[in-house]
Design a protein around this nucleic acid. Structure first.
Lengths: 138, 138
DNA sequence: TTTTTTACTTGCTTTTTGCAAGTAATATGT
DNA sequence: ACATATTACTTGCAAAAAGCAAGTAAAAAA
């Protein structure tokens, strides 16, 4: 069981104890916006996470109850990672990162997603949370 | 000038290139919610950031146009750090971290802030953004 | 004029990351 | 049945980042 040290009782600080690095939220982004759910799929992302880092972060996320790991339906040699409700609640954080990056940095965002977020953020957040929940049941 | 390498053109990834570590968003939290603006004040926070890390992060934030550095009004030996509009736009990210940490982790959050965020998030976000802007003018 | 404040910098150790290669349990093709 | 491929890791090592203690330097206060 991977343990994390808690630097203080502040909620921002404690959230960062779990999510504050360059890779964790990218894995969750891939689950929410790219429908990814296996180790092999996470490895294929553009940012090229190292295999040991990916294994470590998945273990932390599982230990923290943000996702669950189960043998895949089709193959016994494959695992499927799914978001828990604690994981689904990270969707708003990811969406704020999309909006900030798209507004202030040189990035290429999906125009449809961006338009959706800019015209009705609350509805879009709910939509992506619900989609994430449905994927977790499949 | 501190440079950061951009791992991809994804807005989430690019935001994390800048903000994805354990300290950067704590400095911004202190500016937004604790009215801090000087090196010495940031050092006093509960999480005990090291002096070299703080100096490094302030330089990155300045290079990225998230905050500005100026000689303090009262003392020539003191600097005042202020949020730019790009910095003010990080407020929603911090607020989502507050909400997630308070809901899912063992933390102690200010009950007034929490109630305010839970009853009317959008209004509260605007309020703290506006307060941050006003501080930047003072 | 000495001491204190303020904002760092430097040197060193420890931890984390990144990279390449290796392992092991299925699963597939012939 | 047997060899090859897929999938999910682990291991070892070098490089980068973080953490810690001490030192520096300009300005302010006593």
């Amino acid at each position: 069981m991977k343990e994390l040290k808690q630097r203080s009782t502040c909620p921002v600080s404690t959230s960062l104890d779990v999510l504050g690095d360059k890779w964790t939220l990218l894995i969750l982004r891939d689950m929410v916006f790219a429908n990814k759910s296996t180790y092999g799929q996470f490895l294929q992302s553009e940012e090229k996470i190292a295999t040991n880092i990916l294994a470590d972060r998945l273990a932390v996320l599982e230990a923290q109850g943000i996702l669950t790991k189960a043998v895949a339906a089709d193959k016994k040699s494959k695992f499927t990672y799914r978001l828990t409700e604690k994981g689904v609640d990270i969707v708003p954080i990811i969406i704020e990162l999309v909006l900030w990056g798209a507004k202030h940095c040189s990035t290429i965002a999906d125009p449809n997603l961006l338009a959706e977020l800019q015209t009705g953020k609350d509805a879009a957040v709910e939509k992506y949370k619900q989609l994430a929940r449905e994927k977790a049941l499949a």
